[in-house]
Design a protein around this nucleic acid. Structure first.
Lengths: 216, 216
DNA sequence: AACCTTACTTAATGTTTATTAAGCAAAGGG
DNA sequence: CCCTTTGCTTAATAAACATTAAGTAAGGTT
């Protein structure tokens, strides 16, 4: 079909002759946000530029006008942090994580994107692999610190002392907290009634903090 | 190129005229295992039949001779349980989970498959969606029972009493354990040095059991 | 009015992909 | 020795997809 078939118009059938509203706002950001939604809902590999373009009522080439390639679009989406609710430092951060889990359950958005894409990035030569590796490293550090902040001063040293494998209990707890949030998202996406992300997250944080506050 | 180019031979260049060793073993199972490995390493959407076929030194059509479609192959792979180490019931199961995490770190296989595919299945109309929904439901039940078994008899009632949302603390703990195992797998795949799946899993199970054994 | 920038479109290209149809060859039973 | 089963192959098809090139059109700027 390569020579004869015209390029399919993937746009939804709008008005008879809707000549593109031509808005004043930053089009790039609009596309970015739409792409984020579609990537979150369908993953990267399972999303075509046509999918994104269709939601914006433009053609795939229209998307590539703003971002050179599909991979560039993905990196731009990942770089776009949702700073509407910035993470605080210190011990307040752990509460913030529970709040985040709550918000995610109400409005499936940012974290859904990360949960789906992070798992996908763990395959083969996924373009987002390095991005997620770095992100997890940073997050483990930050949450590890937050865990230490939550502990009584008398337990901090034990929790931040590396074991024979060079890893600290606080770091292990941080990895656990991140893991539980990511894993819950998957279960929740598959069966929203089955799990309450916020309360389970809170339970795990509570349990871990209590456990690290014990003498053993 | 569709009319002129011959079908590419995706097979690796073996001996000059290797006429297919024609083994006696169940070919279907060989293909199944190979497919499982490739799906685990690259995900479902990112894997082509040619990828799998190449590892078996046959053509994509050769794979489809045994399984009608790529989706059928996936479902067959999921149905193929790794029963080399059957899960015990009762309180022994929790220890078994830690052992499983250990084995997975040593030989990335079955669970890697499930970690990658489960997240992928949470997208759109993925063919494995229902399979994973059911699997999580069953697992939450089994692990929830195992958690109850580990608790002292005096705490069992509280842990199995549904809260106002209809969910039990034991069920929440079960969801958390599953989530942490899945989530850790992703972090570990991206950065094997950064986390010790077995010890973190053990830590979370310990912490949760201890937490459910408290009075609150 | 001339122009530039922004935001696209149409069209074509080349690739990858799953899937189907039909044929071939070896093994083994009867 | 025929026949059926098993296990493929080659070939063709049709669709999906990312990407490129070149053109068009509207606003804003000067």
């Amino acid at each position: 079909m390569s020579e004869t078939t015209p390029a399919p118009d993937t746009r939804s059938p709008g008005g008879p002759e809707a000549p593109t509203p031509r808005k004043r706002v930053n089009r790039r950001e609009q596309i970015l946000r739409t792409a984020a939604d579609v990537f979150a809902a369908r993953g990267f590999n399972n999303t075509s530029l046509a999918d994104i373009a269709a939601m914006l009522d433009i053609t795939p080439a229209g998307v590539l006008h703003h971002f050179g390639s599909k991979t560039d679009l993905l990196t731009a989406v990942l770089e776009l942090r949702d700073d509407s609710d910035p993470a605080p430092g210190g011990s307040r951060m752990l509460d913030h994580l529970v709040t985040t889990a709550e918000r995610n359950a109400a409005r499936p958005g940012t974290t859904q994107l990360y949960a789906v894409l992070s798992a996908e990035s763990a395959t083969d030569r996924h373009p987002a692999q390095e991005w997620f590796r770095d992100r997890y490293t940073v997050l483990r550090g930050e949450i590890g610190d937050a865990v230490l902040d939550r502990l009584g001063p008398e337990h901090r040293e034990a929790a931040s002392t590396p074991g024979p494998d060079g890893r600290t209990p606080a770091g292990a707890a941080a990895a656990a907290v991140i893991a539980v949030m990511d894993g819950l998202q998957v279960q929740w996406l598959l069966d929203p009634e089955a799990v309450d992300m916020a309360s389970v997250t809170a339970l795990v944080i509570d349990a871990l903090v209590a456990r690290l506050s014990q003498e053993d």
